[in-house]
């Protein structure tokens, strides 16, 4: 059932699906489409998109990143908004393209209109009510780039007012119980290539996050970035833990759209 959000149809929204979501987590992309359509947004998926270039940029290979960044801006130039179910990839566009391309008018235009899914729902669509239930104990993993670059939530380091956009959306669901962690926003240790070049540290960080969720009684572990969740899920499955991974779009789609 579609919500009464028909007035959102006027905007032209380009869907940006990160390469690894396209290849390994297609259901997260589909859930994102379902959620956006539920709120009356007609999305378009430009077929020629591949990757924002973050893996190369994080390795210092800015020359190799440049053509990908330019491609991205060209592909998404026609849209009013670009929406993506990944804080990290959005942050790459919004915060790091400038270091790659320099300051350009095109970057300004596309960068400022590129949104992570949750912030698009809370800030642009102003979603403040939904009908749907998700009767599970859910642990929210606060992915770093979403948290400290996009500022999707107040982080523990800064002194200021409390807010948390992903949490705010989850709390709209009936029956949901959010678990309390010991370290509320420590990094999971994915970090792209870091996961491989610093394998020992990366895996210990991941295990520490998983253990924190296990102690807190998390049944479903969610977040805004499938990359962090992929890393955590890798550890969970290797160690046969009883925690399930769901991207926040999957939870919202399951609770709201199915309703």
């Amino acid at each position: 059932m579609r919500g009464d959000w028909a007035y959102n149809q006027a905007m032209r929204v380009g869907l940006f699906i990160p390469c690894y979501v396209d290849q390994f987590y297609p259901q997260v992309g589909l859930a994102t489409v379902d959620v956006l359509e539920h709120f009356g947004v007609e999305v378009e998926f430009p077929e020629e998109q591949t990757c924002c270039g973050q893996p190369m940029a994080n390795a210092g290979l800015h020359m190799e990143t440049k053509p990908l960044a330019e491609r991205f801006l060209r592909i998404f130039a026609p849209y009013d908004y670009v929406v993506c179910p990944s804080g990290s990839c959005v942050s790459m566009v919004r915060h790091h393209y400038e270091q790659i391309l320099g300051h350009t008018a095109e970057l300004d235009r596309v960068g400022l209109r590129t949104f992570e899914l949750c912030e698009f729902l809370t800030d642009v669509l102003k979603v403040d009510r939904v009908t749907g239930a998700y009767p599970h104990r859910v642990g929210l993993h606060q992915s770093c780039h979403g948290l400290r670059e996009l500022r999707l939530a107040a982080n523990s380091e800064l002194v200021g007012p409390e807010f948390n956009k992903p949490r705010q959306l989850l709390e709209l669901l009936d029956g949901i119980e959010l678990t309390q962690l010991t370290r509320t926003d420590e990094c999971c240790g994915f970090g792209g290539l870091f996961a491989v070049t610093e394998e020992a540290v990366s895996c210990m960080m991941g295990r520490d996050r998983v253990n924190d969720h296990e102690r807190a009684g998390t049944e479903v572990l969610t977040g805004v970035d499938m990359s962090c969740l992929m890393h955590l899920d890798g550890i969970i499955r290797r160690e046969n833990k009883r925690i399930r991974i769901q991207h926040i779009a999957e939870i919202l789609a399951a609770a709201i759209v199915k309703n």
Partner: peptide, 16 residues
């Protein structure tokens, strides 16, 4: 120390 994600048959773009 980690499993790889189970590879799906079809990509998002195919399903979409």
């Amino acid at each position: 120390q980690r499993d790889l994600p189970p590879p799906p048959r079809r990509t998002f773009r195919e399903l979409y």
